[in-house]
Each structure stands twice: as C-alpha cells, then as structure tokens.
Design a protein around this nucleic acid. Structure first.
Lengths: 226, 226
DNA sequence: AACGTAAGGATCGTTGAACAATTCGACAAG
DNA sequence: CTTGTCGAATTGTTCAACGATCCTTACGTT
C-alpha cells in the first residue's frame, strides 16, 4: 500500500456523508434538542414532509433513525411523537451514566481528553458568570461527554451522545432548569481536580454521590404529565 | 392505580408489536445471526423485496433499522452490505464489554439473574459434552447476556444484545469457532463461582484477564479479508 | 348515567410505478 | 498502462393511490 492512498483512507468515512433521509434526521434532531418540538408532541408526516419539501417515504426513513435513538416514539398507526421519558427512564439513564462515567473515572486519563474536561469546566464557569444558564447546561453536558471519552471507545462515546440527547428531553419538561444546572458547576471542578490528582477511587466515590444527588434532584423536579 | 392494571401494564409493549418493516427486520436479523447472509455480502433491494413479497420502500425501512444496530452497512448509492467488522471494531467491542461486564460483576447479584447465569453455564457444559460447539457458543453468549443483566438496566441489556449480535458477525468469519468457544466453558464456571462466593473484586480481576485473553485470541484468529 | 355500537374523518401503512442520480465494468483511444 | 467515454444495473427519491387503523362524535340501549 503506498503512502498517498494510506493518508487518504482516513477521510473515507466523510465520503458516504449525505442522503436526504439522514439530513432530514439531522434537522429534526436539532429541533428536538433545541426544544422546538416539545416532548409528547406528535409529528405529522404530512405537515413535516410538506414543510421540508421531501416525500413521506423519505421522512419516514428519517423517523426510523430517530426512533432508534429514542428521541421519537413510534406508535403503530398513530404516528411518531417526541419521546417523553418516564421517571423510570430517568432512573435507567442514571444507571447507565454510573456505569459509563464510573469506568471512565477509574482509567488513567490521557492528555487530550483531560484538556477537553478543563475547557468544559471553564466554559461552564464563564457561562455561570454571565447568568447564561442555557450555556451552563450545554457546558456541563460537554463535561460529561468528555469524561466518558476517557474510556477511549467510539461505541461508548456514541452511546453517551444518545443518552445525553435523551436526557435533554427531560430537561425540556422541567420547570426550572437553571436551578438544576447551577450546583454542578462546582462539582465538576472538584471532580476534575480529583482526576488530575490521580485519585481514581476518591473520584469514583465522589462521582457516585454526584450522580445520586443529580438523579434525586431531577426525578423530584420531574413529574411528566401523562 | 389498581392491581389489575398494574399487572397488565407489563405486557403493554407487546401490543404495538407489528409492522411489516419490523417483521422484515426480524427475519433479516435472524438470517444474519445464523450466518445465512455472510459478512461482506451485498443485499440486493430488488432480490430481497421480491423474495419476501414486500415493496422496496418497506424493505428500505427494515434496512435502516438494522443499519442502526450495526448489522448492516449502508453505502450511499451502492447498497447495503452485511457488516464486516474490522480488527479495531473487535477491540472496541471488548472495551465495551470490559466496562459493562466489569460493572455487572461488582454489583450484589440478585437471585433471578443468578439463576440465569447457572443455567447458561449448565447448558454450555451439556452442549460441550455432546460436541455441539454451535450450542456451546450460544450458551456462552447467553451467559454474558445474563451477566450484564446484573446491572439491572434495560438500556444496558439492549446495548449488550446489539454488541453480541455484532460479535456474532466476527465469529462467522472465523475459520474455527469451536477452538474459540471451548476454553471458555470452564472459565464461565469459575467466574460464576467467584460471583456466588461474594467476591466481586476477585471476580472483576478474573473477568479482566478473561476478556483480555478472549480478545487476543479472537483478533489473532481474525484476519478480515478486505 | 354507563355502556355498546355505528358512522365519518384523519392519518398511517404499504404498494407499485416512475424518473433522476450514481456506480461500475467494458471498451476504445492516447 | 493510463485515461476518457458509454451503457447497463442499482440505488435514491418522489408521487399517487388504496386499505387499515385510530379517534371522535353521535346515537341508541340498558
């Protein structure tokens, strides 16, 4: 194999990147994350396919994709709805977080990932400084994404991405997201310190307490009206 | 909520059960698991839609489903192919296993899940007794599925199901699966013993070694011809 | 008032056909 | 041996149609 071909082969995945259905899925995913479509809301095939100028068939392919990511709920003969996680779903999401983040924290951190953690903490603190609670929320999410990336596994990264997208649905039905995100800025800072100090066991214990606290807080503030 | 409704609500998921696309996906999934469609093989839309008597559009919906489970590889304008995992994929799969199974082993096992583990070990031993290496393989897979279920998380169970389906693809391109599965029957028995004895740390250490060994063996015997 | 039934409209599920876009192999030209 | 071109085969996407299913409303029965 010659060098030219070897260098190029890294960019190969970018080639397959397109397809109307996937682009439609991207758009819908963004809208859902942003809260434009609210949890529980039904997405009409006709309305959306018209609005986006794609056929119903293509839109349905996009729906399937998002359904598999648990962002949409597909009910037979009744249509697709923006997922509205139940209290048990929230508990399960935190069980997964304990596993993924717990494993991450026990690993020897590599330099690049550590950098991502530091930046996320800084961003959160800066956002908090200017009362931008939306910004604090997304920075916190970036922190945990970076934390999980310590596992150094593409599949785990992907799973975490989905998990956090699902969690964002929960935030959207909370009455007061600011109160939820604020206290965790300091906690992230502390957790980062323990990791940098090379104290995996203490970091793991701290994280467990962290997640317990967050889960309780979230479930308490969360009463999905169904 | 009264008791009757509570009891019934467990069966609710089964109600939504149907849809041609999902049934088609089930069929294809089974065929892939069984090795009827070999990794790398292309699945023609025309041939399969004719063979199954469904329209191309419906078949495409099924393809999307399986693509998200990483069983199919969708290449734009070129069709769908049965996934052929790379060596890096195998490594990543084992990274995920270390995380999921490691977390499982450290938890206090509940009675029901323990029962599943015992049965899987017995099945594997019985199958080994009659030289049924296919049977040993599926029993071993059941063992690890049951192991992960100790985490008590539906999402983790689902992730493990997908992971094992993907791993089955790897087994299908191995020249000699019998040699791979055989030595792990005893290991499963030992691991089960450590769990029953309530020695999570020793079980975790044993498991780590177990998975390291399996990964090395698998990657060594695995040279995907691409 | 509670329940079973019927009718109607809206929406989804699935199909079949059609055409554009893309890939791939073959073959000719340099 | 490399490059350009053509055409067959396959996928990507759209469209229109029809049956199936669900929801609502209305009506009648008990």
């Amino acid at each position: 194999m010659d060098n030219v071909a070897a260098d190029l082969s890294r960019d190969r995945p970018r080639l397959g990147r397109s397809s109307t259905a996937e682009r439609v899925a991207d758009i819908l995913r963004d809208r859902i994350s942003a809260g434009f479509f609210q949890p529980g809301q039904r997405l009409s095939e006709e309305t959306i396919s018209e609005g986006l100028g794609v056929s119903r068939n293509t839109l349905r392919e996009a729906f399937r994709l998002l359904g598999h990511e648990r962002l949409l709920d597909h009910k037979l003969n009744r249509g697709v709805f923006v997922r509205l996680p139940s209290a048990e779903d929230v508990s399960d999401l935190y069980r997964v977080r304990r596993v993924l983040e717990g494993a991450a924290v026990r690993r020897k951190p590599d330099e690049r990932a550590l950098e991502g953690l530091k930046e996320a903490v800084l961003d959160a603190e800066r956002a908090a400084g200017r009362d931008d609670w939306q910004g604090v929320g997304t920075a916190n999410i970036r922190f945990h994404q970076a934390l999980v990336s310590l596992n150094d596994s593409p599949r785990i990264d992907e799973a975490m991405r989905q998990l956090l997208a699902e969690l964002r649905l929960v935030f959207h039905v909370m009455e007061n997201p600011r109160a939820f995100h604020e206290p965790f800025v300091d906690r992230n800072r502390t957790l980062l310190g323990l990791i940098e100090a090379g104290e995996p066991e203490r970091a793991a214990a701290y994280l467990d307490d962290y997640l317990d606290h967050a889960e309780r807080l979230l479930i308490h503030a969360y009463e999905p009206n169904r």
